[in-house]
């Protein structure tokens, strides 16, 4: 089982390697990837250095080109594919039909993984991408229960990758437009959800208010931890009851599912967080490396260590974690 870790910068990438990642995924410095944030990602010399560094250490480089090409920007997506290949990417992570078509025709030998942004959640969709674009692996959206993941693993011949840890996206990825509804920018069109440029936090008489494009997402009392106003994690009013109508600020953590994931033949576990710090990458990679090694040694006696969970909670959104959709009760 491959441990696939995120890197938004060279220091993060080096930490991932030092702590035992088998592969690292990155994005290019433009809107061709779904973490298009200022000060993040790779271009030019840095890209080449990242590839060299990983290959010198016997690790693989995955490059995410996982947004959808704009009608007047097609060359940018083509160029991203060419640049990634020329700089030694081992694998491209793609979502757009047109980009998949371009990459699989121009580079028939290239290893292509289907991005979570393509939202393939069932056998027919997986067959579609296998048959038409020869994808070798599918990254599953965070909407499936562990039972459904196992069913898919039995019914498909493609490699499957699942999200193991990180920010919990509660909607089928690639099919959520809540962010553009509120701000005009979404993961699909702009490579970002709840973009920072629309965020405003203000101390008021009623408490600390966090807003996205002027919409009140949440209001915190002095004893509460204020979080980033991700729009699906605010407290809203449904016919008189104020609560986290969609989801609480929380992170996904699947450590305890590791034996089941390993047993059903999941090829890779992915750590979310290209936008996070090198210290986050270091901490999360270290814990997951230990857990995977322990589980591989003796999966029947594997149990998730309290120290691991505490370590992960410390870097989690809202300092709490969840099994998300893997756990049927969450749904």
């Amino acid at each position: 089982m491959e441990l696939l870790c995120p890197a938004g910068s060279m220091p993060a990438l080096k930490k991932a390697v030092a702590e035992g990642a088998d592969a690292v995924y990155i994005g290019l410095k433009d809107d061709t990837n779904a973490r298009h944030f200022a000060g993040l990602n790779f271009a030019g010399d840095k890209l080449l250095k990242a590839a060299d560094y990983l290959h010198q250490h016997g690790k693989k480089l995955h490059i995410a080109i996982n947004t959808f090409a704009h009608p007047d920007g097609w060359r940018r997506w083509q160029y991203a594919v060419d640049t990634a290949v020329d700089n030694g990417a081992d694998t491209l992570i793609l979502a757009d039909l047109a980009v998949l078509d371009y990459a699989s025709n121009k580079y028939p030998e290239l290893d292509v993984h289907l991005s979570v942004q393509a939202s393939a959640t069932n056998t027919a969709a997986i067959q579609f991408y296998q048959q038409h674009f020869n994808v070798s692996r599918v990254v599953l959206p965070r909407v499936l229960s562990i039972h459904q993941v196992k069913q898919l693993a039995r019914q498909t011949s493609v490699e499957l990758e699942v999200f193991a840890y990180g920010s919990l996206c509660i909607m089928a990825e690639g099919r959520c437009y809540l962010s553009s509804y509120m701000t005009g920018e979404s993961p699909n069109t702009a490579g970002a959800c709840s973009p920072a440029s629309f965020v405003r936090c203000q101390e008021t008489a009623q408490g600390l208010e966090s807003r996205l494009n002027d919409v009140l997402i949440d209001r915190y009392q002095p004893h509460e931890n204020a979080g980033y106003p991700t729009l699906c994690k605010g407290r809203f009013d449904v016919e008189g009851t104020v609560y986290h109508a969609l989801e609480e600020p929380t992170s996904l953590n699947t450590l305890e599912l590791l034996p089941e994931l390993m047993q059903c033949g999941i090829s890779a576990v992915k750590i979310e967080g290209r936008q996070r710090s090198p210290a986050y990458v270091e901490q999360v990679t270290r814990i997951w490396r230990q857990a995977i090694d322990a589980c591989a040694r003796d999966s029947s006696n594997f149990s998730s260590q309290p120290a691991w969970n505490q370590g992960l909670e410390a870097v989690s959104e809202g300092r709490q974690t969840s099994l998300g959709a893997y756990h049927r009760k969450w749904q």
Binding site: R142, V143, L144, S145, I170, M171, A172, R175, C176, Y177, L178, Y181, C232, V238, T241, A245, L246, E247, A325, R328, K329, W330, Q331
Partner: peptide, 21 residues
Amino acid sequence: YLPLAYSARCFTARSENRPKD
């Protein structure tokens, strides 16, 4: 009303404090 997102979670059931099943 525009369909903006799809989830594994049923938000209507959640709004009534019911599990999806």
